[in-house]
Design a protein around this nucleic acid. Structure first.
Length: 541
DNA sequence: GTAGGGTTAGTC
DNA sequence: GACTAACCCTAC
């Protein structure tokens, strides 16, 4: 089994190479990555995503989300404030994600999508940004752009001016500038750093008459890497720790990984120095490495390219599709992506094992379906026309469904992070759910109960504070990912329950009333306390 | 789209 | 069985 840490080094290296997106996806899902995923690898993913977006000229909400995650990663790593290039890229992409709807306007569209985008991106997303710890991303340029967008909503002249600008090219350029800066700051991939150093050492050994054996290389590696650790010359392991914190265990693992390559070479003086001068850098070499994995550590799915590719289509990390210019927009999906980064750990117990992988998926889903700018529609995705467009493979989180039955469950846990795994078939043995007969042939089946997570509750609470109770549709649209499994009515009901509980807790109700409890009680307490807070004001937006 | 009353599943 | 949260239905 490949060591997860080594796998992360390999993946970091591959992601920095000009390999095809599908290959990056394959490796991402196939390699046994460590948990938690090292921040450096996370950032590599994000940069790769940005690079992919740029190369496909597909800037969407996912791009914006990637930039937000990078800012968060940098901040968590101790960075004081986002770089100017990052803030500039964010502002430019936000403008493009909005202005694209003006370019893509259909004759019958009076700008509805544009207005919606302004509301979604600038009134919700950027406004939230300003109030968050990520406020560093809010540059003067972004503020000015926000003013312009809001002005464009009411002023056709401003909209025309916006349409006349090449916001896409400006955004692409800004992202490129940031990418160059970020990649320069990150330095070469860790494996490349090691390979270069090892190759240099090996050549020196050859000149000094070494026997070229793997055993000697082992000894030299130990000395070499020990010096690297002391000098801190290497960029350090992918988790961002500096070389000095690179423990002996990791050191030995690294050596093993390098030495494993040496085993393939003839031991009698045939261990070519070339073998260690560099690690795989081309797609062909990566493919070769992949074949090695295939025979050792990679699961069967990597053997089944076609099947795996289908999975990628559903949930790719690196998109190869390009909806640019087609009006595709999924940023309101991406907008709440951070829920996978910010979720209350207690809410993620059921996905703990896959949490980090979920992060990777979420990156991509920026669209949260995870597919920034792609036309590949997956769960909760938005199609290129901006409308919900579920595929046949999509899971409708609010659709009526058969209840769980252990005999027919396809998933070991209903808490599976992948809802599509939660397919259930009706039981002939037990039927705890109601089956109201709608007509002679159709049964109305209740959805399975899904307990609200603290993240959902907190998001709802904050949303109501901000937008008022009663604006459930809008609140849901502001947090599509967090509330992807909830309907507007669910939000309303939940708020009703929350208010009911709070009033009971603080003793706002007479004791007799509290004792009554039960049916219908929550409705009354809710109605008396929250009757469409500032609703009329809000609806002016 | 939302409010409000009713129903049901899950928990203790 | 009581209680509660989640879900459903229907009127507006």
């Amino acid at each position: 089994m490949l060591d997860p840490r080594i796998a992360s080094w390999i993946l970091e290296f591959v992601l920095r190479q000009p390999v095809e997106d599908w290959l990056a996806n394959e490796l991402l899902f196939a390699l046994p990555l460590p948990s938690p995923i090292p921040p450096r690898l996370k950032k590599t993913f994000l940069l790769r995503r940005l690079s992919s977006d740029v190369s496909h000229r597909s800037l969407a909400g996912s791009t914006l989300f990637s930039l937000e995650l990078i800012e968060e990663l940098d901040r968590s790593s101790g960075a004081d404030a986002p770089s100017d290039s990052l803030a500039a890229a964010y502002a430019a992409v936000a403008v493009e994600c909005t202005a694209r709807f003006l370019r893509g306007r259909l004759d019958g569209d009076r700008g509805g999508n544009f207005f919606e985008a302004v509301n979604r991106i600038w009134s919700c997303r950027v406004a939230d940004l300003e109030r968050s710890e990520a406020a560093g991303l809010v540059s003067a340029t972004l503020r000015e752009a926000r003013r312009e967008m809001e002005e464009a909503v009411v002023n056709p002249i401003v909209r025309v001016g916006l349409m006349g600008r090449d916001t896409k090219m400006a955004a692409l350029d800004a992202v490129r500038v940031y990418l160059e800066e970020a990649e320069k700051e990150m330095g070469p991939p860790y494996l490349e750093c090691v390979a270069e150093t090892v190759g240099e050492e090996w050549r020196r050994s050859s000149v000094t008459g070494s026997d070229g054996s793997v055993g000697e290389l082992d000894a030299k590696l130990r000395n070499l890497l020990a010096r690297q650790v002391e000098d801190g010359r290497c960029d350090g392991p992918p988790d961002g720790d500096r070389a000095k914190s690179f423990g002996l265990v990791e050191l030995e693992k690294l050596e093993e990984s390098v030495l494993d390559r040496g085993k393939d070479a003839p031991k009698q003086g045939g261990c070519s120095t070339d073998k260690f001068e560099r690690l795989p850098a081309t797609a062909a070499e990566v493919m070769k490495a992949k074949n090695v994995f295939r025979s050792s550590v990679l699961p069967a799915k990597i053997d089944n390219m076609k099947e795996n590719q289908n999975q990628m289509d559903l949930n790719p990390v690196f998109s190869v599709n390009d909806c640019a210019g087609k009006g595709n927009e999924s940023d309101h999906d991406a907008m709440s992506q951070q829920n996978l980064m910010d979720q209350d750990p207690s809410d993620l117990k059921h996905v703990e094992e896959n949490r980090e992988r979920a992060f990777l998926s979420s990156i991509d889903k920026g669209t949260k379906d995870g597919n920034p700018g792609t036309c590949t529609c997956t769960r909760d995705n938005i199609d290129c026309a901006g409308a919900q467009k579920p595929s046949l493979m999509d899971w409708n989180p609010t659709a009526r469904r058969f209840e769980q039955d252990e005999d027919f469950s396809l998933s070991p846990s209903e808490n599976s992070p992948n809802p599509s795994n939660n397919l259930r078939f009706p039981s002939t043995k037990r039927r705890k759910f109601s089956l109201a007969l709608e007509d002679n042939r159709t049964f109305i089946i209740r959805r399975r109960k899904r307990k609200w997570s603290s993240l959902e509750e907190e998001t709802l609470r904050k949303a109501v504070e901000r937008h008022g109770a009663g604006n459930w549709k809008f609140i849901k649209s502001c947090h599509p990912e967090i509330f992807k499994n909830r309907t507007e009515v669910d939000l309303k009901d939940k708020w009703r329950n929350m208010m009911s509980s709070e009033l009971l807790i603080v003793g706002s109700l007479p004791l007799e009333r509290q004792k009554e409890g039960g049916k219908g009680d929550h409705q009354q307490t809710y109605n008396h306390s929250f009757s469409g807070l500032e609703k009329s004001h809000w609806k002016k937006i």
